[in-house]
Nucleic acid binder design. Structure first.
Lengths: 183, 183
DNA sequence: TATTGTTATACTCTATAACTATA
DNA sequence: TATAGTTATAGAGTATAACAATA
């Protein structure tokens, strides 16, 4: 009952110049990734009731293996330092990290994982990996490697595209209906 | 310079029972999908400055080909009717949809795309498909089909998992470091 | 009673801008 | 001047709960 997301037969007429197979790949990839993240969040919620960003911040800290200044966390999370400030407010309030002064540079703070924070990470990371195993563990080594390769090529291409100015208005579309109501 | 996201050599010791290949597939898939959505948003922003949810709502309306009651939009978007109310407030204010009374069921409203809303959809959808073509258009038919298949299997598996109660605490993890700082 | 939609409220995430302290 | 962090402010998105109107 769970079928691939497919484009309609008139896709080519409606979107001249667009590749139907590419559209299907994109739709199916995005939906799969989104469903995966939903399942991770569902399983992870009971651990500490934190948002995805908060769990990521804890994982970054734990991955570094040492206290980190705020702007480094901001870089890894791809958000502004202002956003990190409020994220850390939550984590400090919940007792999962502490702020301490940087020993040599007094502009900086160091964010340190508490024992409780470490406990959260120790519960949370296996949940993520277990979910991955539940979802993708049945793939053959070749299938897994092919998937990783395709995703890496896509990320490579996307990194190039992101460096370009957004393309200007496309050829106008002809008529209606595509993969709209695929759920 | 853009390499696949890989787990560390000690992954197996740290996360007994977790499949390293599955973890790599999950990480690469999620990152690729996220980068794709970022690029779509970057290209789509100039069209009308709407959020992803607002564009999706317009696409749902246009895909249906007729005015829809609010709760149907909520179902398709997987959000509550309360969320749709505020989403529609924005779209009405911007002039992209109108609310009108349902002819027979006076509890309902019908949301209708305006000419301006139609214009937004006509500009926006080709941008999405063009992005897909830019990113995935170089795949062979076999590669594309394999990708679609793997994603569909994952969604199928995830639909099963979502129906289960979240699994209870996993075997404890042994030591530190995995795919933390892969960016 | 159930359904539809709105309002009220609250919380999180994120951003920009202005500001302080420090380098 | 540049960097690090905070505060203030704002806006989007989402949710739950209570409610009104209608079926």
């Amino acid at each position: 009952m769970m079928q691939p997301i497919r484009v309609g037969a008139d896709f080519g007429r409606e979107f001249p110049g667009a590749d139907p197979a590419a559209a299907e790949v994109a739709a199916n990839l995005v939906r799969a990734a989104s469903a995966f993240l939903d399942e991770v969040e569902r399983r992870r919620r009971p651990v500490a009731g934190l948002s995805a960003g908060a769990y990521e911040a804890l994982a970054v800290l734990e991955g570094a293996g040492e206290p980190l200044p705020g702007h480094v966390i901001a870089e890894r999370l791809l958000v502004t330092t202002a956003s990190v400030t409020s994220l850390l407010d939550t984590l400090v309030r919940r007792g999962f990290v502490t702020r301490e002064p940087h020993p040599t540079d007094r502009r900086k703070i160091l964010v340190r994982l508490t024992a409780e924070g470490q406990r959260v990470v120790d519960e949370m990371l296996p949940i993520v990996h277990r979910t991955a195993t539940d979802v993708f563990g049945a793939l053959t080594a070749a299938e897994a490697e092919a998937l990783v390769e395709r995703c890496t090529e896509a990320r490579r291409r996307l990194a190039e595209l992101a460096a370009l100015p957004p393309p200007t208005p496309r050829p106008r579309r002809v008529r209606r209906r595509t993969l709209a109501d695929a759920d």
